[in-house]
């Protein structure tokens, strides 16, 4: 792909890199799919474009019509991807963003012209979701794409990420990715299982429930509607928590093979290492959701590990 008509044509078809040098088991290969190569810098470009195109196809958004406004809760990457797509399509975007995201995410949203609405840090992503839903209810003119409940999210991975992995690595035995909205795992996971039911799907998550202290009762909990609607419980084979220290250690280890990736990539690699330790042989494909650029201010690579880990406890990095 040497020449394209729009930067949006650069979304998807990301490269995969062999990082088996980092595998704790010589009989297990590990390949990392670099979603940071997307033009907006993360895997969420796929979701942003798919949700906007779906809204256009169903008439919720009309191309060329002035003054159309969108609202979306995001801890950063979906917001950034949407801001890029909206900028090029002429839509106005409001992003509900938890206060405790890295400052780079905030700046990226601003540079694409998105308007930021802060939600309380103590409520994490739950708080952003809650506030965005309230604002969407109060303002029926807003187009609310709502990535947690929008099937275009997993479908972007069913149609893109999954087939790309199968094309580039049909020998895959295990697929590892971060949970988040669950879109990547559900879409790519379902596609891979349809091709080979033996492929194991491992979800990695940060100890988010530990970090969110604004929860008043268990009934304030949240399960993304797409997880239920897309059959998440049948697609996932394992769900494992990776703590901030291990995530950052693995983010640093990735630089040994020349990969500068975000902290959630380190978490996913830590998960892949656990897979590798638990099986005799296999091929693990791991998703690296974004590059390291947005996390430089956290000092993740250069400062004392204890200091960075403590900082990460108060930051949404996943």
């Amino acid at each position: 792909m040497a020449k394209v008509g729009s930067v949006l044509d650069l979304i998807g078809d990301t490269p995969m890199v062999e990082v088996s040098q980092l595998s704790p088991n010589p009989e297990v290969r590990i390949l990392l799919k670099l979603e940071g190569q997307n033009p907006g810098g993360s895997v969420k470009d796929r979701v942003a474009l798919a949700m906007v195109e779906d809204a256009e196809a169903t008439g919720k958004l009309v191309r060329g019509k002035p003054d159309q406004e969108l609202i979306e809760p995001s801890s950063g990457n979906t917001g950034i991807g949407l801001a890029l797509v909206c900028r090029l399509r002429g839509y106005h975007l409001r992003v509900v963003l938890p206060e405790n995201v890295s400052p780079e995410r905030r700046q990226l949203l601003e540079l694409w012209g998105a308007q930021i609405i802060d939600s309380p840090a103590s409520e994490g992503s739950n708080g952003a979701v809650k506030l965005a839903r309230e604002l969407a209810r109060e303002n029926p003119d807003y187009v609310f794409l709502y990535q947690y409940a929008n099937l275009a999210n997993p479908m972007a991975h069913y149609r893109g990420t999954g087939p790309e992995i199968w094309r580039d690595c049909p020998e895959v035995t295990h697929f590892v990715a971060g949970l988040g909205t669950s879109g990547t795992l559900l879409g790519a996971g379902r596609y891979l299982k349809e091709r080979n039911p033996g492929v194991q799907i491992w979800a990695i998550e940060p100890p988010a429930g530990e970090m969110v202290d604004g929860l008043r009762s268990l009934e304030d909990g949240y399960i993304p509607p797409i997880f239920l609607e897309f059959g998440g419980a049948e697609i996932l084979d394992r769900k494992t928590i990776i703590k901030p220290r291990e995530s950052i250690e693995w983010t640093r280890r990735l630089t040994e093979v020349g990969i500068f990736a975000g902290i959630s990539s380190g978490a996913a690699m830590a998960g892949a290492a656990r897979v590798a330790e638990s099986i005799d042989s296999g091929v693990v494909v791991v998703v690296s959701p974004d590059g390291g650029w947005k996390y430089l201010s956290t000092g993740a690579w250069t400062e004392d590990l204890d200091v960075v880990v403590e900082r990460a406890r108060h930051l949404i990095y996943f």
Partner: peptide, 29 residues
């Protein structure tokens, strides 16, 4: 997560650490 192991039948042994956490909206969004 025990939902993907043997649910309530998942064995625990001396020295294991069990964490109970509320389900919350994930980060990567």
């Amino acid at each position: 997560d025990v939902r993907y192991l043997d649910q309530l039948d998942t064995p625990v042994a001396d020295g294991d650490v069990v964490s109970i956490l509320p389900a919350v909206a994930g980060g990567s969004c």
